[in-house]
């Protein structure tokens, strides 16, 4: 018998799937929600084989706000933990010129995830139990020239998670904000990332699993990013605006 289910939104994400593996390893049933769910059958089977737990696939598009309630109703059970790994990151330069692209990043990183987690929060609150994990980004801690559209959406998402946590404190429902720095995934393929600051997806899996066990509020992965961002946020705006970092 598997333990209570964990729902992964955006399960094709390298980070999301690593999180799924970690919870499956701990014996939880897994609900994988993603676009083109059928094409993910091999991954579903992989999880089942590795961990001997029940794994189900669910069609899910974060931009379909009308579909949220039917999607939640269709799940085999209300999960005990939900992890949202959905996100897009278009090239900043292009987003500056093409409003549709900018809008896509804003909606996929903020609006969509916030609406679906909000709906889940209501159900968790009624039940009186559950943990909501949102994967935001260090890019949301301060807007920078090279990725402020993505960063602004993540900033919105971080603020949403912070407020949700505040609202739900005392209800039995807990909210965790995850702020990865660099992670070697499909999103960053081809970028030459500094080794010491770059986490493998499995590190995110471990960090998120442990944050859920311990009921942490905000985590940076790798942890050194907390220091990096504290310094970046402390730079006075008059100086910051002239920097290219």
């Amino acid at each position: 018998m598997s333990k209570e289910a964990v729902l992964i939104l955006g399960a094709r994400s390298d980070i999301g799937f690593a999180v799924a593996r970690r919870f499956a390893q701990a014996g939880h049933a897994i609900q994988l929600a993603l676009r083109d769910a059928q094409g993910f059958e091999d991954h579903r089977r992989d999880l089942e084989l590795r961990s001997n737990v029940g794994v189900t696939l669910h069609e899910f598009d974060v931009l379909d706000s009308a579909g949220i309630e039917p999607f939640l109703d269709s799940l085999p059970e209300l999960p005990i933990v939900v992890v949202c790994a959905v996100g897009t990151m278009n090239e900043q330069g292009r987003s500056e010129q093409e409003p549709d692209l900018a809008s896509l990043d804003m909606r996929s990183n903020f609006e969509g995830p916030a609406l679906v987690l909000g709906a889940i929060a209501n159900r968790f609150e009624t039940r009186g139990r559950g943990t909501i994990v949102g994967i935001s980004s260090v890019a949301g801690d301060r807007g920078r020239a090279t990725n402020y559209i993505y960063g602004a959406a993540k900033a919105g998402f971080s603020a949403f998670l912070s407020g949700l946590r505040n609202r739900l404190t005392g209800t039995g429902v807990h909210v965790i904000t995850v702020k990865p720095g660099f992670v070697a995934t499909r999103m960053t393929d081809g970028l030459d990332l500094p080794e010491k600051l770059t986490a493998a997806p499995s590190e995110l899996g471990e960090a998120i699993f442990s944050a859920v066990q311990k009921g942490r509020n905000v985590i940076y992965v790798r942890r050194v990013w907390w220091l990096v961002m504290t310094i970046i946020c402390a730079i006075p705006e008059a100086i910051f605006k002239k920097l290219r970092i």
Partner: peptide, 9 residues
């Protein structure tokens, strides 16, 4: 490393 699926047992 990204091709790391278990297929059958």
């Amino acid at each position: 490393c990204a091709m790391d699926q278990m297929i059958h047992f």
